[in-house]
């Protein structure tokens, strides 16, 4: 546990010490800000504010953001040789991977918290559906955790950051495609099953409409756990390969 905490602290420090993290945050705020304003202008006088606006945008944005946030976590350690030191330190491989994952998730949580400004603005000018929004935020938080775990896995597999990012973007994109799966697969039952396997399938029709379902939480927690487990095994494989 101590190891997880130490690795977590170092990685968080790393995030906030690097200008890249601020650039990503600023870019995200800019995009969500534009999106928010567009929706606001469109909604005024015609409809209530869309409660799941930002989470829905993020559900797509994370396909690209999560790999960017996680690609360096293990790939860089491997490339720079620091992984050798980490693995010979008296901490479990699980603690290393978990600490890194949690740091990425923490950074992501901060980003999410920043976008909450839009909700504050909405509260001050109208009466938004806060419960709905909270459900969507909880959903996108879990969703983000799962995408970050996917990113970590690919970062563990390769020592090339670009390859790691590319592979995880590819996988996340496929998992995101669930929303469009019906246009590819004409068999309704099959499409339904495929959709249940995708990340997005557990977001748009539950969290995004203000409904929290235990199965969706289990899905995201399960995907996250599975990805982390595999990532730990991959890191660990250094010891027995």
């Amino acid at each position: 546990m101590n190891g997880t905490w130490v690795v977590f602290r170092r990685e968080v420090g790393q995030y906030f010490a690097s200008p890249i993290a601020y650039l990503i945050a600023a870019a995200l705020l800019l995009v969500t800000g534009l999106y928010f304003n567009a929706d606001l202008t469109f909604s005024v006088g015609t409809k209530p504010a869309e409660p799941a606006l930002i989470p829905l945008l993020l559900s797509f944005a994370m396909v690209f953001c999560a790999p960017l946030l996680t690609m360096r976590l293990l790939a860089e350690e491997r490339r720079e040789g620091t992984l050798e030191l980490l693995l010979t330190a008296p901490v479990s491989d699980g603690a290393i991977v978990l600490g890194k994952f949690l740091s990425a998730w923490f950074y992501y949580t901060i980003l999410l918290a920043l976008t909450f400004i839009y909700q504050i603005i909405l509260v001050s000018i109208t009466q938004p559906d806060m419960g709905h929004t909270m459900a969507a935020y909880i959903g996108i938080w879990l969703y983000g955790g799962a995408t970050l775990a996917v990113g970590i896995l690919f970062s563990a597999i390769t020592e090339n950051q670009i390859v790691a990012a590319f592979l995880s973007i590819a996988l996340l994109f496929i998992l995101w495609m669930g929303e469009l799966i019906g246009q590819i697969i004409t068999n309704l039952e099959l499409a339904e099953v495929v959709r249940q396997l995708t990340l997005i399938g557990h977001f748009t029709s539950s969290f995004a409409v203000g409904l929290i379902r235990a199965e969706d939480i289990a899905y995201y927690a399960g995907i996250t756990a599975l990805m982390l487990f595999i990532a730990i095994r991959v890191v660990e494989s250094n010891r027995w390969r």
């Binding site: 170092r10 010490a17 040789g81 992984l83 050798e84 030191l85």
Partner: peptide, 12 residues
Amino acid sequence: YLPERVPVYPDM
């Protein structure tokens, strides 16, 4: 342990 190529985190 000090590996052959000293592994460091340049930004720390």
